[in-house]
Design a binder for these strands. Structure first.
Lengths: 187, 187
DNA sequence: CGGATGATGTCACTTGGTGTCATGGAGCCT
DNA sequence: AGGCTCCATGACACCAAGTGACATCATCCG
């Protein structure tokens, strides 16, 4: 007889996603989430630093994916090409979880506090990519700008991809957006 | 005999800036700020939506400045050139308040919650610029990407400008960074 | 067998944020 | 002048997010 049900963290995430979806982020208390998962408020905060974080714990994985994709790009790749490789790697990951991704996105778009958290996660993602570019020998203003521009492309593309009327692949949209970026910055 | 001291909002901002600087954002309660300004906690929240917002009330002005600069750019200007004009307008504004800007920046950099707020303000600034570009006839993926890239340039430049070892003008740094962006995206 | 471990529960507390009603000087109308 | 309304502020009670401290008890390990 085990003392606790397994995967408390996963149960909390599941409960949070469900409740945020049903009633909205603001109308869901941490106590509600914990109760739904058969736990207490205090335990929630042992697994997640704050109420919002329950939706963002996967972001560390994304950072890892992007960083290793940048590191794995061919020696000759220009900064933006290395970033493009990372974005493609990311697109695969999301394509496999489209249902979850768009559900989560709907919740985030509906709440400014969650958008703030999303932005700071993307910002640290960009910083990690910039560091990875730096490791490839690109100097600092260039590395940061390539990373930031790349993440901007990713964000814009992601938004178009989750749109219900969209029928295209995330990767397709990303490459189109990258081309747009290049067009718009080359005068 | 007036019933209240004038400019409650300004007194609250001044008190907040001082206290955040002295003790840090986390070690300052809203009640502290209000007391320092000779007011109550309840009144603080009548002037600012939350504790962080006391540092960001000027951002609406910045949006206006950027948007009108984009609108005022020459007819023939490419998207990124119109954005560049906006960034230059912004640089003037900050150059006039360098002392305040760098003090405020130090406070923000020291606190993740404040960085989140900063990011969402920059994000809405980018959105406003994108709309202004749209009004000039540029279509949507291009308009958004030019705006996002431009704001990224602004952020990177601002960080370098407030660095105590820096001796250059914000406008100089911005133009250098714009050139870097163009170099890095033109393969 | 017994003690250490570690995830969870309990409880009390601080602080951010809000709803509601009271207060009283300033300004306006007659 | 007298009185009336306006409105920025105060007072008070309340909820929810987070945190610190200590208790509990199945499992694991020697």
């Amino acid at each position: 007889m085990t003392r606790w049900q397994p995967d408390a963290q996963g149960r909390l995430q599941q409960a949070a996603l469900t409740l945020f979806d049903e009633r909205g982020f603001d109308n869901t208390t941490v106590a509600d989430i914990a109760a739904q998962a058969g736990l207490t408020k205090r335990t929630f905060f042992r697994h997640f630093a704050d109420k919002r974080e329950v939706l963002f714990s996967g972001s560390a994985q994304l950072v890892e994916l992007f960083v290793s994709a940048v590191a794995a790009a061919p020696k000759s790749a220009a900064p933006l090409d290395a970033v493009a490789a990372a974005l493609s790697a990311g697109s695969e990951m999301f394509e496999e979880r489209r249902e979850f991704a768009s559900r989560r996105q709907r919740i985030i778009v509906a709440n400014p506090e969650l958008q703030e958290r999303e932005l700071i996660k993307l910002s640290s993602l960009a910083a990690a990519v910039a560091t990875a570019l730096h490791d490839r020998g690109f100097e600092d203003p260039a590395a940061i700008l390539a990373a930031e521009a790349g993440i901007a492309v990713f964000r814009v593309s992601f938004e178009r991809w989750v749109d219900p009327t969209n029928r295209r692949t995330l990767d397709e949209i990303i490459h189109e957006s990258l081309a747009e970026l290049r067009a718009v910055t080359s005068t």
